[in-house]
Design a protein around this nucleic acid. Structure first.
Lengths: 304, 304
DNA sequence: TACTATAATCGAATAATCTGATTAGCTTTT
DNA sequence: AAAAGCTAATCAGATTATTCGATTATAGTA
């Protein structure tokens, strides 16, 4: 049995991979550049293969280096989970829980969700990050987040998902358009460029268009909003229409607005809400409890 | 972020769990008893919880200790796999491969299998262990084996399986009984206690009885054999019948015997052969290649 | 040319790990 | 009851590994 590499050296390798720079990686690990440099060399020696190609000035991870990084990441995540588990005495609802959430969900459920979690599990220390699906997936992969609350479907990239509930889409329009379009809304009766959407970075844009079966792209206004709140403002100010998720309406996003809420298009229009996590996690029990609490704050729960 | 435990201390914990004795565990790790003792204490301190209950003379693993052992085992296995992968330069068919196989399969395919593997992948170093399904599952869990070749179905205990092929059961009987029973064999025409089986430790006993639909237990002789070879001897010497897998017949187990080979009972009588491995392994690609080679030596391949 | 930034290298300081001897508690043997 | 044999824990000292700061070499930039 050959000698195992030290976890410390593996973290050095991960930091180097993340920062692509010895100095910054060393800083991130709170060690000197020389320590990190020799740590990497040590690792290469132990593993008997080159992990990075040196180029006198810069460097590049080899294919093997990338593979080792990926495996090392999993090992370190597992070890951290082991430590957390032990330090919280096996209580799965203690210790740090790092949740990622998209901006078209976060503002409407994270408040009550974290309040309920704090109340039921006071020893749980929540860290919450709000970002786009794409960014959150990166943070999940890198082990910077434990679990994501996302709107589905999503490109899982090897991760695992649990569907927790549904969030219906409504259409919000100015009174004039509401009269014109009827209920459920007949998109053909709306003027061209009268429907406002979020920037394409938000997955809600695609989900809404698909779920509400908005086929005619001419109805879409080319100006996009960067948040649901500004989307509402935009639709109202420019005498248009837009899609709003039920949970946002429940949270009172339309309070003080003159927009009319109606059913969009034909058929069931909703997005699914779910949890996404690494398939190699050892915190499924924790996520299950999280899913149960989360389900309470969704318009429609489909848990179990 | 709290400090991570050292892999060394985790191996100490695993050794202690396996040997249930500080001295023997220390020996197995090639360190002194004091080193192992302080290593464990160190670990408990870092994790902030008790892993073993000391009882003035002996000790017992706590519930948390058992859980930590299980997680530590996974971490260490992953790390070993990382080292092997790196040291064999990413070539998945290099380095050590530890295979477990049951005695009613091993003697008939391990020869040609390992010959083919050696030929196609000369840098692969095979270690092969032959034991009962139960024992092999323990060795797999403990990380002492990488993959098992078993007859299915089997209690997976959380492991993953791939079905690779089928191995039909035949009935071998002395000529007198063959005339009596016809083909396919009508068990009712056989005398009581005329069918011989392996010891119940062998999973083939159950598989054969089920697959060949032998309902009437009165036909079974209470004397059992401890190997297929002695089973054949027994059936011949005591003028009886028995079930023999096709792969054993192909390997010539009945050469020099007067037993007649016939179809057993009604319908398709076979056992499935498959690979079993830890779901957390990172050597699926290696096992896939192994499955492909294995399939060639099975009477019927069902791969893909 | 001087300046900045990069990664590697080296010796000395520091931290960790390991050992062997010893202790203390308990069981078995004499 | 005493002695011998295990057990695991403890401690001082030796050994080994890790880390740092300073320095070097190289390349790009002002």
């Amino acid at each position: 049995m050959s000698k195992l590499p030290s976890l410390k050296n593996l973290t050095y390798l991960l930091a180097l991979h993340q920062h692509q720079n010895f100095n910054r990686a060393a800083q991130a690990c709170f060690v000197s550049q020389s320590t990190l440099s020799s740590g990497i060399q040590n690792l290469e020696e132990q593993l008997g293969c080159q992990l990075i190609e040196r180029d006198h000035k810069s460097f590049l991870f080899t294919g093997m280096g990338e593979e080792v990084v990926e495996r090392a990441r999993e090992i370190l995540t597992h070890t951290e989970e082991l430590v957390n588990f032990a330090q919280s005495q096996g209580n799965i609802m203690e210790g740090p829980l790092r949740i990622g959430c998209i901006p078209t969900i976060g503002p409407f459920i994270l408040g009550p969700l974290s309040k309920a979690l704090k109340q039921n599990y006071p020893k749980l220390s929540l860290y919450i990050r709000e970002d786009t699906t794409h960014q959150l997936m990166n943070l999940l992969r890198d082990g910077d987040l434990d679990v994501l609350i996302l709107a589905l479907p999503v490109d899982l990239q090897g991760n695992q998902q649990w569907v927790v509930g549904k969030d219906p889409f409504k259409m919000a329009l100015v009174p004039e358009l509401a009269k014109l379009a009827g209920e459920p809304v007949d998109y053909n009766k709306l003027p061209n460029k009268s429907i406002f959407l979020l920037e394409k970075e938000h997955c809600m844009t695609g989900h809404a268009v698909t779920a509400c079966r908005l086929g005619n792209k001419d109805k879409i206004n080319p100006f996009t909003a960067s948040s649901l709140h500004s989307l509402i403002q935009m639709a109202e100010a420019l005498q248009g229409a837009t899609f709003v998720p039920q949970m946002a309406i429940d949270a009172g996003i339309l309070n003080g607005s003159d927009l009319i809420i109606t059913e969009p298009g034909d058929g069931e229009a909703y997005r699914e809400i779910g949890l996404v996590f690494r398939p190699t996690t050892s915190r499924r029990q924790t996520f299950r409890k999280l899913a149960e609490v989360l389900a309470e704050f969704l318009p429609i729960s489909t848990l179990n």
